[in-house]
Computed example of a mutant assay.
Amino acid sequence: MSKRNVVKNLWSRYNHLLILLYYGVIGLLYHTFNKYIVPKYYVHSFLDDYIPFIKVFVIPYLFWYLYIAIAVTYFGLTSREDFIKLMLFMFGGMTICFFIYFILPNGQKLRPVITEQDFLSRLIKGIYSIDRPTNVSPSMHVLDAIAVHLAVIKSKKLQNRKWIHYISLVCAILISLSTVFIKQHSVEDVIYAMLLSYALYRVIYKPQRNRKPYFEKESVYTSG
């Protein structure tokens, strides 16, 4: 096979990965909003007052990045359909979140003053210093964790690997809990992320009957 054909085959097989370029837009929006948005509304639930600060939850909070990377890489290389659904969920959800942050600039005042110098405390202080307590509701951390878990349990390739489903569920739950236990988010942020996720789920994973998803490639057959 010629190099030209190899490149052509690779392009045909993996051109859906170009969607990842939208991460540049997400990154630009994040840094812009994180720097310039001034909260007008502060999110707080009475439940937040009963939730303790547990610094060990910074581990699942940071594991979120690996959780996302593994899912995006796996589905990107193995299933065009699952990958595009995941990207629609994540990128669509995060874009909606930024729109909400713009029209309802929000923040929170839940963060404790951390004076300890142990490793976990320093990790949390580092997160606090980089990520301002603004643009918190809905929580994109929770939204993306739900997106990945839905991609896992809805994937035809993984439908018989229940152990992966269970591991993914535990990861998604721990990541979501971590947002409130390290005081990055209010309980309300988690609830709003779940509601947005449900709406996205209905759109992306519940297509109309007899309607072929637009992201599936059409098969071309020629009669002999």
Rank of each mutant, 00 (worst) to 15 (best):
L10W: 15
L10D: 05
W11K: 09
S12E: 11
S12P: 01
Y14M: 10
Y14A: 12
Y14H: 12
L17F: 06
L18V: 15
L18Y: 12
I19Y: 05
I19C: 09
Y23K: 02
Y23V: 14
G24R: 09
G24Q: 11
V25I: 15
I26V: 13
G27A: 03
L28E: 00
L29G: 05
L29K: 06
L29Y: 03
T32S: 14
T32W: 13
F33T: 08
N34A: 14
K35E: 13
K35D: 13
Y36P: 09
Y36K: 11
V38W: 13
V38K: 15
V38Y: 14
Y41K: 01
Y41E: 03
Y42F: 15
H44L: 10
H44A: 04
H44I: 04
S45V: 10
S45C: 15
D48K: 11
D48R: 07
Y50C: 02
Y50F: 08
Y50T: 07
P52C: 00
P52Q: 00
K55Q: 15
V56R: 00
V56W: 06
F57Q: 09
F57H: 09
F57Y: 14
I59L: 08
L66C: 05
Y67N: 01
Y67I: 07
Y67T: 00
Y67Q: 03
I70E: 01
A71Q: 01
A71S: 09
A71C: 03
V72P: 05
T73L: 10
G76R: 05
L77H: 05
L77M: 11
T78M: 06
S79L: 03
E81W: 02
I84C: 02
I84L: 10
I84V: 12
I84G: 00
L86H: 04
L86K: 09
M87I: 14
M87F: 13
M90F: 01
F91G: 02
F91A: 01
F91T: 03
G92D: 04
G93C: 02
G93K: 10
M94R: 10
M94A: 07
T95L: 05
T95K: 01
C97R: 04
C97L: 00
C97V: 07
F98R: 06
F98L: 07
F98V: 08
F99G: 11
F99C: 13
F102M: 05
I103V: 12
L104K: 08
N106V: 12
Q108D: 01
K109G: 08
L110V: 11
L110Q: 03
R111F: 06
V113L: 10
V113D: 05
I114T: 03
T115P: 14
T115V: 15
T115C: 07
E116S: 13
E116M: 05
S121C: 02
R122I: 11
R122A: 09
L123Y: 08
I124A: 13
I124E: 06
G126F: 14
G126D: 08
I127W: 10
I127L: 15
I130K: 02
D131R: 14
R132Y: 01
V136H: 00
V136Y: 00
S137D: 09
S137L: 04
P138M: 01
M140R: 15
M140V: 15
M140H: 13
A145H: 02
A147V: 08
V148D: 05
H149K: 00
L150R: 06
L150Y: 04
A151Q: 08
V152T: 07
V152L: 13
